[in-house]
Structures are given as structure tokens and as C-alpha cells.
Amino acid sequence: MHLWSTLDPVVGAALVMLLALMAYAVLAGADFGGGIWDLLATGPRQEQHRQAIARAMGPVWEANHVWLIFVIVILFTVFPTGYRALGIAFFGLFHLVLIGIVLRGAAFAFRAAASGESRQWRLWSPVFGASSAVTPFLLGLAAAAVSGGGIRVLPGGTVQVDPILTWYSPVSILMGLLTTAMCAYLAAVFLTVETRGEVQEDFRRRALWSGAVMGLLAAALLPLLPAAMPHLWEHLTRPAPAPILLGGAALALLSAAAIYTRRYLLGRAAAVAQVVVLLSGWAVGQWPYLIYPDITFHGAAAAGPSIRFLLQTLPFGLLVLLPSLWLLFRVFKAEVR
């Protein structure tokens, strides 16, 4: 309690936003990944794969999606300057993200209303899959631009975007692919817990493959970081945060090893921890910038007391939210069938 009241409110709000972003990355990330595996489903059991994905996502995807709304609301309530700059800079990119989000949700719901193997199911499946694959890629591009100086905000407020740093640079493309691979990995790992028999073996193999792809992408990205994101890199290699990077790598190995040895619950826990650590590393590297190099969290914060509003209402909101979420996941995710 004491810690809570002495905390710099800007730091507090940024932390809340980071936690919501983590929840979105882990939960909705896995839902995007489900769409990717739906798109890539091949082999004799592809319909079983699709059904398993639909079953796992059905009850929870809308709740998982709300974490994104939460991030956006915090952004414009507490950091309106940042929201403005992102809105102007990402006019095209976020519109594409939106189309992806709308199509993904609509296609999933349309498909779910039909029976498997109907025409409707076959029509909407690829839409669901493709939009699930493209949206995280675009979000990865956005993250790269935010960290790599792709957005400049001039003193008068004029916002400039560097299209190369946002769209075409190797770093941004690798970040996009890494985000997509992370979603696929999370989904495959989660699905090993929620399936049985041969389907489970299939998702185990998919988890290992996508984990390997993720590792390769990370290995390709790492050498580029010092030049592309000097600020981030400098922070990450300072002694204090360096353990974050190493910890993330260790967790990645742990989750892969657990999946390999069919310890799926452990694999799932380690994969979640891995994403959490990855995002923490990103956040630590990013701090104090909301948008590197012109907008800091403190500079973007609203002058008004909306920050305190967010922090003070949070406990009450969580009082409603956490038991409800607990119920949702207990009812649908507790027993393994």
C-alpha cells in the first residue's frame, strides 16, 4: 500500500498499460496464433485441428480482445500526446490493423455460426486465418517504428514518419515476423494442453517448429539492434537489465525443452513467462520514451488528474474483473478433456 502511494503516478500508469499489453500479447496473441494454425492446417487431421482451435478460442476470445481496448483507453486518457502522435503517424498502418481485427473477429464469428465443412465454414476460414497472420505482423511493424525512431515529433507538434523505418527496414520486418511467430508459438503450446492423442502430437510438433523459427528470427534481429535501436540496446546491455535478456533466452529454452519432453503444463507456463519477460525487456529498453526519441512518458502525460483517476479506480475495477476472469477461465480452461 505504501509503495502504491509513493509511486510516481506516471510510472504507475505506464506499468498498468504494460501489464494490459502483456495480457493482450499472451491471451489475444494465442488467439491470433490459433488463426495462423487454422490457415496452415494440413494433413489428415486438419479438420480436427480447426475444431480444436475453434473450441479453445470460442468462449474467451472476446474477453482477450478487450485488453487491447484497455491499452488504447489508458493511452488516450493518460498519455493523450502519445495517442495523438501515434494516431497521426500510423494513419495507414492502424487502419490496416483495424481491418485485420474486424475481419478476424467477424470471420471467426461467422464461421462459428456454421457447421464444419459447410460452404460458409470454407469461405470464412481463410479470411480468419489470413487476418490472424497479418495483424500481429503489422503490430510488430508499429513496435519497431516506435522504438527505432521511425516517428519524429517536431517542436511545433508536426508528426513525421519515416516510411523506410516503419515498413521496409530489415529490423521492422523481422520484428513483424517475430511477433507473428510468437503468436503461433503461444497458440501451439496452449493447444498441446487442450488437446489429446494425435492432435496433441501435431501441435507439439508445430510448437517445436514455430519455437525454432522464433529463435532464428530473434538471432537474426539481435545483431541489427545496436545500430537500429541504439537507445533500446544500450539499456538492455547495461548490467541491470541484461539478466532480463538472458532470462528470456533461458525461458525460451525451458519451454521448448518442456514441450519436447511432453511436459505441457510446464511448457505453457514457461512460454507465458517468456513473453512476459520479452515485453518487460522491451519496456525497460524503451523507458523513459513512449515514442523514441521525441516523446517521453512524462512528456506525454496529461496535466490533469486523469492519471490518479486511473490508478484509484483500478482496484475497484479489478474487484469486478479478476473474479469474473477467474470464473471464465475456470469454467472453460480448468479441466483438460
Binding site: V73, F76, S306
Partner: peptide, 12 residues
């Protein structure tokens, strides 16, 4: 944003 934000926060 910071003025109408509280309405959206609770709506969230």
C-alpha cells in the same frame, strides 16, 4: 482525451 477518458475507463 484526458477529460472524457474517465468515462471510457469505466466503460472499459
Amino acid at each position: 482525451g484526458s477529460t472524457i477518458g474517465p468515462a471510457f475507463t469505466l466503460e472499459g
